[in-house]
């Protein structure tokens, strides 16, 4: 094989060429897109997300993608999800649940086989696999090849303890919740781009309304209408004579 032939191989990354040739779809988070070389989740590739535990914003991270593809033809397959997806929550995020399939397998081998079938069928847009068990390099290779063949999105969600294990996934990142409510993303590996990038994202935006502080400590705006009205009512509750009776219109305008 000549050198020119080797250089033509699609899997070969050339530092001199910065053009984004790989198909990708936006993650829905501008900051994450900016850090990803392809500008989004790479299509036809296996992405590995490593988590310290379940419930760190992993679904919210993928919600924009799931929302887009649940509204199109093709299915979304969750293989061995740790818990049950709550239909109401998914609906409120715009994810169409009748395109969503759940698969529970008794072994990792079956999970990999089923993922392969789904990815290569041409009927699945997104396949998400949760696995706490160690996966052989061969299994990861199978998943990666199946995603390439099916030209769809495959996500493998595993415990963070596998961070140092070798992986055939094209894109690898960790997701860690921070004390301030944000989630830290650490890109371990990505095709054609820089690795070891760390940045934070606010995934669960609703949490700004959630606080354990008592009501008395809540910040109160200066011109709070409600407070003024309450004061007026207090005046109204006081014993009144006919002469100092407040007009109704005045009360309602406060």
């Amino acid at each position: 094989m000549s050198l020119s032939q080797v250089l033509r191989h699609p899997a070969l990354w050339k530092a001199s060429e910065h053009t984004k040739v790989r198909a990708a779809v936006s993650t829905g988070y501008q900051r994450l897109d900016h850090h990803l070389h392809d500008g989004g989740w790479p299509k036809g590739a296996l992405t590995e997300i490593l988590l310290p535990h379940h419930g760190v914003g992993e679904l919210r991270l993928l919600t924009p993608l799931l929302k887009t593809y649940s509204q199109k033809s093709g299915f979304i397959l969750f293989i061995n999800p740790p818990l049950i997806p709550y239909v109401d929550a998914l609906n409120s995020q715009g994810i169409v649940c009748h395109q969503l399939l759940l698969l529970h397998t008794s072994s990792t081998q079956d999970a990999v086989w089923a993922a392969q079938q789904a990815l290569t069928s041409g009927s699945c847009s997104v396949v998400m696999i949760w696995s706490d068990d160690p996966l052989a390099v061969l299994s990861l290779r199978k998943l990666s090849l199946a995603a390439t063949q099916g030209s769809n999105w495959a996500f493998l969600l595993r415990p963070q303890s596998y961070v140092s294990s070798p992986s055939m996934a094209s894109l690898r990142l960790t997701l860690t919740p921070l004390k301030n409510g944000c989630s830290q993303i650490h890109i371990l590996k990505q095709p054609g781009g820089w690795s070891d990038q760390r940045f934070s994202l606010k995934l669960l935006t609703e949490q700004q309304y959630w606080t354990s502080a008592p009501g008395s400590q809540w910040p109160v705006p200066e011109c709070n209408k409600r407070q003024t009205v309450t004061a007026s009512y207090k005046q109204y509750e006081a014993p009144l004579s006919e002469s100092d009776h407040l007009p109704q219109t005045e009360l309602s305008t406060h």
Binding site: S73, G74, D88, C97, L100, L102, L103, S123, C124, S125
Partner: peptide, 28 residues
């Protein structure tokens, strides 16, 4: 037809090998 097919053949295959109860939809 769009980017992906609406065929359920892969579901049939999975159910054939792993059992009908393994592959499920959620209905509200």
């Amino acid at each position: 037809d769009g980017e992906f097919k609406s065929s359920l053949n892969f579901v049939n295959k999975i159910q054939a090998k792993l059992g009908t109860e393994t592959c499920l939809w959620l209905e509200r």
